[in-house]
């Protein structure tokens, strides 16, 4: 067992009710340990608190109870040590692709020449060479999300957080993006926490799948994925994959039914 880099300790979140309504309990006390170099996917029906949990880890939201430790230090707010890729396209529209990727480096005060080299290397890794001087609007959704991944990675965070980053993409593009992200991970072994509601995506990418219950969310199952690396998309039709998929489909189905019944 490798070193634990991220510890989520009894983290819960209750949103105050709007206009006198009842408070919304989004997340039950949740605990999770993330080992260095792990690729963890968090799988759950929508509305179960996945984004809430990830935003708390990012420091963009505060837990109502519990705490999150990164390398033993408690998280108090957002910081460059936790890179984040959002589901919505969050590239800065006034910056070119290269300037977007360089954003965090500039905030850190890294000199221009060094910045240029890092940007060039990540532009290559996400296959965007030739688009450095384009503006985000001129790029497809898939290309924008690749830029967002490069922007987060260029900052060299201790952990990469992704909140359904491919959720708005069409199926073909999504499959390519999964392979691209996995390829980068297989080479660099950056610790990743990846939120999704797509079962195949959760299995294909992960070394560990965390299944969450319907709202209020809590961890229901923690399933290791032993499939070998490097993974190829053909793996999605292998018997081992199908078996995992069947297992997870059952878990999620029960939750989706419950979530549906609750409304």
């Amino acid at each position: 067992m490798t070193r634990t880099i991220l510890t989520i300790e009894n983290v819960s979140r209750t949103f105050p009710g709007v206009r006198g309504g009842a408070p919304v309990r989004a997340l039950e006390p949740t605990s999770l340990e993330v080992a260095q170099n792990d690729f963890i996917t968090i799988l759950g029906p929508s509305g179960c608190g996945k984004s809430t949990l990830l935003r708390i880890v990012a420091g963009l939201d505060r837990p109502s109870g519990g705490r999150v430790l990164l390398d033993g230090r408690e998280i108090k707010g957002p910081g460059a040590d936790r890179g984040m890729v959002f589901q919505s396209y969050t590239l800065f529209p006034w910056l070119t692709i290269a300037e977007n990727i360089a954003y965090g480096l500039r905030e850190k005060g890294i000199p221009k020449s060094e910045r240029r080299d890092i940007v060039a290397s990540y532009t290559d890794k996400v296959g965007l060479r030739g688009f450095e001087h384009h503006y985000p609007k001129q790029l497809s959704g898939g290309m924008q999300q690749r830029t967002a991944i490069a922007r987060a990675l260029a900052n060299d965070p201790a952990i990469l957080l992704l909140d359904e980053p491919f959720g708005a993409l069409d199926n073909q593009t999504r499959a390519l993006m999964q392979e691209l992200l996995l390829g980068i991970w297989e080479r660099e072994r950056k610790t990743v926490l990846f939120v999704t509601h797509d079962i195949e995506e959760a299995i294909f990418l992960a070394s560990r799948v965390i299944v969450m219950t319907a709202r209020p969310g809590r961890i229901k199952a923690d399933i290791p994925v032993e499939l070998p690396h490097p993974r190829h998309y053909t793996m999605k039709t292998s018997p081992e994959f199908s078996q995992l998929k069947a297992q997870l489909t059952e878990e999620i189905r029960a939750e989706a039914l419950q979530a549906d019944g609750a409304h």
Partner: peptide
Amino acid sequence: DLVEAAYTLGSSDRGIVNRVLIPA
């Protein structure tokens, strides 16, 4: 979401004003 993205990229409060709010 742009402001939040900038925070996760290491922007300070001043950085948010000068390099997100103003150019945006």
